[in-house]
Amino acid sequence: MTPEHAALIDGEPLPTERVNAFLEAPPRGAGNGATSHNEPAPARRQPEAPSVARQRRRWATQVIVTDELARRACAARGLKPPPGVSPAKALTLAESDVADLGSIVAAALAHSPAARTLLAALESEQRVPETAIRDYYDRNQDRFLTPEALRRGTDPFGEASAPEDVQPYEEVRDRITRELRQAAGRQAFFGWLDQARSHVTYSHGHEHPGDPSHPDHEHRH
């Protein structure tokens, strides 16, 4: 029998219906380890092995729990996320997002305006020291080669490279700052989520997919 709630968050029930609505959306890129693709979503979901279905429900629960936690965090911060999308809208995840964030967090950000709003707020709060920006530039010269140097196949760390083969620090500083702020914001989001999930108790069948206490567990996120 399916429980009425998928989880308790600080003792408050999260209705199973929210997980069901997410699961019933067209399965385009919305599986464990989800990625985007160009094929149209099938009209009907193919039959799944019981273990796969169990894991998909646990994965979906994590996405919906993250959405709810982000809604509460936004409310506490006085942030107003834009209106949400329909649960029936196909969920498409970029390969790079899944690789960088893990499928659960990537799916939560794709699904949840609150999660995206919270992430943006956390990114805006990050302060990147000038020394960190300069250090990144000095250690990653290969990322800042000029187009001419790239065409010549210049080795930025070789003896034959010249200062003019690398874009000046002043020209790329703002780009580096954005990248480092984004990385720091994501780390802050992960830290917030780990702490927020400590207040969640899951119903049977809705545990984290990596929870070793159930036989289907796996460690893909």
Rank of each mutant, 00 (worst) to 15 (best):
G158W: 07
S112M: 09
E125R: 08
D138C: 04
D155E: 08
L180I: 02
I104A: 10
D142M: 08
R116V: 01
V172D: 06
A108Q: 02
V105G: 00
R139N: 13
P113D: 09
T117G: 06
E159V: 14
R134D: 12
E179L: 13
S112C: 10
A110G: 04
S161W: 03
P168C: 00
L145W: 02
P129M: 10
Q167M: 13
A162T: 14
A120I: 03
T154S: 09
G153A: 10
P147T: 10
Q141E: 12
R116S: 13
R116H: 04
L109G: 02
I104E: 15
Y136L: 01
A114P: 00
A115G: 04
G158Q: 03
D155A: 11
A162V: 14
V172M: 05
L180F: 00
S103P: 01
P147S: 13
R139P: 00
S112R: 05
A106G: 02
P147G: 07
Q126D: 08
A110N: 05
L122H: 07
S161L: 05
E171S: 13
R134E: 15
R173N: 10
D165V: 09
S112E: 08
D100A: 15
E125S: 11
V172L: 04
A132Y: 12
A108H: 07
R152M: 04
R173S: 14
G158F: 04
S112W: 09
P129G: 11
E171R: 14
I176N: 03
E159L: 14
N140Q: 11
F144R: 03
L118H: 08
R173F: 00
I133D: 00
R152C: 07
L119F: 11
A121E: 14
S124K: 11
I176V: 12
F157Q: 13
L101Q: 00
A183Y: 04
E171M: 12
T146E: 09
T154I: 14
V172Q: 01
Q126H: 07
I176M: 07
A183T: 11
F144Q: 06
G153E: 09
E179T: 02
N140P: 01
Y137T: 00
S103V: 04
L122T: 07
T131Y: 05
A108P: 05
V128K: 01
T154W: 00
G102E: 08
P163G: 09
D165S: 06
P163Q: 11
A160E: 13
P147Q: 12
D135W: 12
G153S: 01
E170V: 12
E164H: 15
R134M: 10
G102C: 02
Y169K: 09
R173Y: 05
N140L: 01
P163I: 03
T154D: 08
T131M: 12
Q182M: 12
E130H: 11
T146M: 06
Q167T: 10
G153I: 05
G153K: 04
R151E: 15
R181P: 01
F144C: 08
T177V: 09
R127Y: 07
D138N: 14
E159T: 14
V128A: 00
R139I: 00
A121I: 03
L122R: 13
Y136M: 07
R152I: 00
